[in-house]
């Protein structure tokens, strides 16, 4: 997940390759065949997927920070273990996805360097702060919930390694979502103070979560090609509506109020939400969210402070190899 919002046009790089190969490629896609790393693919397909998968990987890794913010303050040992295991899962997703991106020919180092240099994006949702324990519940329930909406269709993505990675990622995300909802349920059944904490958290996260699905369909660049290539199977607005319809009854069960007084249910049962403030979305995307600077600084710091460790590991591996070669030569 965490990528649809970030699509940008790659039209300038699109060029006509061998027409016959391209036609055969599209026929395979249309027949719902999976494209594998060694198969021929158009350069633009490769580029689109590399960008999408690596953005997804960056999002998993940056996404460790807002939740990691509460590991040391989790209110019970059970919650502490569950949260740490959850954030560890996100790290695993990051690794898994970098590996999927590498099958397209870019190394993890290149991809990470692009992110640290500010040239590659990650999901804007992680540029919002976790201020209370309830935010850990809200992230699991809504952010992971939105992620699942986005990612379930990706399990059928035309690119094999990405599709297979998504199957495992979705299983774990669905567990995270239930865990988040259970945190909310506990808070809502707790003291008045705890319930207020849950409501306040929902108030802050609701609109940014809706923005996770990306710009409205009319404004979304690039969707046509992704749809043609079966990377994307539903439009931003379709997925957003699906998410809202699934979430409203969950909020009602918790006894929480969705912070959208204009929301109504239409004759078909769909919950129609008010207009989203896309100015905020654009601001956060442009780097002006509450935590953009902190998130980048934290990732850069970990990378820079870890450099000597990575160098040591490489130096030691080099020495060991040299010793083995010398031994073999004796």
């Amino acid at each position: 997940m965490y990528t649809q919002a970030l699509n940008s046009s790659d039209g300038e790089d699109r060029h006509i390759e061998d027409a016959e190969l391209a036609a055969r490629f599209q026929a395979r896609i249309d027949a719902e065949e999976r494209i594998e790393p060694n198969d021929w693919m158009p350069a633009a397909y490769r580029k689109t997927l590399t960008r999408q998968i690596s953005q997804h990987a960056h999002s998993e890794v940056v996404g460790m920070l807002p939740e990691g913010n509460w590991i040391t303050r989790a209110p019970t040992l059970r919650r502490k273990v569950a949260l740490l295991a959850k954030v560890q899962d996100e790290c695993g997703h990051g690794l898994y996805l970098y590996a999927a991106a590498e099958t397209l020919g870019s190394s993890r180092e290149e991809l990470v360097d692009a992110m640290l240099a500010g040239k590659a994006k990650y999901s804007s949702i992680f540029n919002y702060p976790t201020l209370t324990w309830a935010d850990i519940g809200t992230i699991g329930w809504l952010v992971d919930g939105a992620a699942i909406m986005n990612q379930i269709p990706l399990c059928r993505c035309s690119y094999g390694p990405y599709a297979r990675a998504m199957i495992r990622v979705c299983k774990e995300e669905s567990f995270h979502q239930r865990q988040g909802y259970e945190i909310m349920l506990t808070l809502c059944r707790g003291s008045a103070e705890q319930k207020a904490m849950a409501q306040e958290s929902l108030d802050r996260w609701w609109w940014p979560v809706l923005m996770m699905f990306g710009p409205p369909d009319q404004a979304s660049q690039h969707s046509d090609t992704s749809t043609k290539w079966k990377i994307k199977r539903f439009s931003n607005d379709e997925l957003r509506q699906k998410f809202v319809d699934a979430t409203v009854p969950q909020a009602q069960f918790l006894g929480l109020t969705i912070p959208d007084p204009g929301m109504t249910q239409d004759a078909d049962g769909h919950w129609r939400y008010s207009e989203i403030d896309w100015t905020e979305f654009k601001q956060v995307l442009a780097g002006n969210g509450p935590c953009n600077r902190d998130r980048m600084a934290a990732r850069r710091k970990a990378h820079e402070e870890g450099a000597w460790v990575r160098e040591a590991a490489a130096a030691y591996a080099g020495k060991r190899k040299a010793r083995q070669l010398a031994q073999a030569a004796e």
Binding site: V61, M64, T72, C91, E305, A307
Partner: peptide
């Protein structure tokens, strides 16, 4: 667990979290 998200490499983030767990 304080290392979580800040380790020198992702593999070590996983390992440190494992030991913490």
């Amino acid at each position: 667990s304080e290392w979580c998200g800040h380790a020198p490499m992702l593999e070590e983030d996983m390992a440190l979290a494992n030991m913490a767990l």
